[in-house]
Design a protein around this nucleic acid. Structure first.
Lengths: 146, 146
DNA sequence: TACTTATCCTATCTGCTTAGTAGGAATTGT
DNA sequence: ACAATTCCTACTAAGCAGATAGGATAAGTA
């Protein structure tokens, strides 16, 4: 599993849109400023997220983006898998590996399967409602230091 | 976390040497044939594994390689980390990431930390004695099909 | 001593992926 | 008509993976 900049931008995009859910549309420009991403690169990420059914858009003068689903219905795992590809640590689990003469006898296979499950157990159990709550609780946090 | 061919060859190398532990030295040639790796590429992997203290070598006519430690004292996690680098799914956990303005406020950080722990929980708890046992039990397995 | 069989060392190469850039077409409200 | 936006396609620079190449060095043996 490797989370690229593209995946990182995608996650931050979904989180930003989740914070504006049921309010106003978000433009690429505003998003790019807030998540600190190159706007032209971000455009491509947004295009993919739209194709993936994560977000919707409105073109023209007062256009912008919004989430296609409720934040609670989108998980980190879904987004990462869609943008950065399968989370398997090694290609052999996808059957795209030349060096597995007898895949059923490979003693490492179980290790990679267990690893994949362990990763899934984390990223598939965090949704964007959780993250929105976390962001909001951080903002409300009292200041303990003087 | 991404396991490369190099990492895969390294793991298979350690396993093969574990299967020959306390017996004879293993040559690069024999190893290359058994694990199906290009010999010149494998040489580089062996060189790294030696630098990492996993294996020892003997040069010359009757040379070859052997494990530097007992199979039980080498884990899959150790080898992978040494050959393929840190298992963190994203660079921000290593502090090598430009896009984290305030790392303590990033709500994704915990996700990546939890992911890293989950992966470690698997790969750091498999050692090469476990794998040797598994290989041997597979070899002894009765044939159920006619 | 010559020869063989090993490990060891360093440089080079090719294709792929990541991250980003560039330029403009299409759409929509004012 | 104009401005602001999404949308589309192509290109590029840098880095990395996965080798390949050519030999130097070491050690046992006839």
């Amino acid at each position: 599993m490797k989370v690229t900049y593209k995946g990182d931008y995608a996650l931050k995009t979904i989180l930003d849109l989740a914070l504006h859910y049921d309010k106003e549309l978000v433009t690429t420009h505003d998003l790019a400023v807030r998540i600190d991403a190159p706007i032209k690169f971000l455009e491509q990420v947004l295009s993919e997220l739209k194709k993936g059914g994560f977000i919707e858009s409105r073109r023209g003068n007062v256009g912008g983006y919004m989430l296609a689903r409720k934040p609670a219905k989108i998980t980190v795992g879904e987004v990462i898998r869609f943008i950065d590809g399968p989370i398997e640590p090694i290609a052999c689990l996808k059957g795209e590996y030349a060096n597995c003469s007898d895949i059923n006898k490979c003693v490492f296979r179980k290790v990679w399967e267990d690893t994949t499950k362990a990763i899934s157990g984390v990223i598939d159990n965090v949704n964007f409602d959780d993250l929105v709550s976390k962001v909001k609780s951080q903002q409300e946090e009292p200041i303990y230091s003087i």
